[in-house]
Amino acid sequence: MEKGKISALQMSVMMYHAIIATGILFIPKTVFDAAQQDIWISPIWAFPLGLLSVYIAYKLHKLYPDDTIMQYSQHILGAFFGKVLGLILLLLLYTSISVMVWQYGEFVVSEFLPHTPKYVIVGMMILLCAFAVHGGLEVIGRLAEMVFPFFSYFF
């Protein structure tokens, strides 16, 4: 485990990027199908729900300040169920990353480069991610802070 230290601001900016970037591609369509022209209300309804999950994460962190989610789920649920939950979390991570990468590739191919094979575009993206991850957590935090002004300007 690499011991990087990031500030609270970096953490929040990273979260912002992750949520907006994945959300902007598919949330509007799904929500619009359900809510039609009243779509503007949906974030207000979603807000307390999001707050709740953040609150839970925060409380858990307060309880086990030095542990990762894998470690404290074992504390809470016991060794076996904790490991099962950890496995589920890892699977969730794996599938959601696959979905995100696929969405990204699909978006680029359909909108900008219709003739370019998707594996090239996805491969480029993954390479770039690998480059960033190679630098470590601190680097990703700094990167997020660095691109935040541009990003928030466009969305």
Partner: peptide, 8 residues
């Protein structure tokens, strides 16, 4: 992005 990552 690669440049910014490198700079970070």
């Amino acid at each position: 992005l690669a440049i910014i990552i490198h700079l970070s």
